[in-house]
């Protein structure tokens, strides 16, 4: 099947089995390897991308379902200009080993579009689908809360 979608602002088309996981199409066909596979079953959130703005687990999305959609990956989040959440994560120490970090940035960016000044608990709800084993989440929560608060941006 030829699947056409907008990926990070560019129109792309991929000849692929329609049930291929969006994650595999991104990583293998489009060589966008910033989205990571931590579990392959929608638990860890390392593969989080946005489809028409909404964060989803790309390991659970058959690529046929993004035909005609806008897909944003971590490669598109910081381009052309670094996103505020990326800057804040850097300044607050929200990234350690970094494997969950792209997914966290995608979830956080979606939250901040709806709610630019979230409470800590709102951030925790928004990031509950992104497992992180390094940070204990506190610095991630601080970064997302502070991302648009001025200073870090």
């Amino acid at each position: 099947m030829i699947v056409r979608f907008n990926c990070n602002g560019s129109d792309v088309q991929v000849d692929t089995p329609p049930m291929a996981r969006l994650l595999d199409v991104l990583r293998e066909d489009l060589r966008l390897v910033g989205s990571k596979e931590g579990c392959g079953e929608g638990e860890c959130g390392a593969c989080t991308v946005r489809i028409d703005g909404a964060p989803v687990m790309s390991c659970l999305v058959p690529v046929a379902q993004v035909d005609g959609c806008r897909v944003q990956t971590i490669e598109g989040l910081g381009s052309p200009a670094t996103h505020a959440v990326q800057t804040a994560m850097l300044m607050f120490g929200g990234a350690q080993c970094g494997i969950c970090t792209p997914g966290i940035c995608m979830s956080a960016a979606a939250l901040l579009e709806e709610n630019p000044h979230p409470t800590a608990e709102a951030v925790r709800v928004a990031l509950a689908g992104n497992l992180c084993r390094c940070t204990g989440y506190q610095k991630v929560v601080d970064a997302v809360c502070g991302a648009l608060a001025g200073g870090a941006s």
Partner: peptide, 27 residues
């Protein structure tokens, strides 16, 4: 039958579901 994929895709990856045809209602 496939909708949002949050169950079906898990079954496919686990190898417990091996369909030849899929009816995708998402769109």
């Amino acid at each position: 039958v496939l909708a949002g994929g949050t169950d079906v895709m898990v079954y496919l990856e686990a190898g417990v579901l091996k369909p030849t045809r899929i009816l995708d209602l998402w769109g």
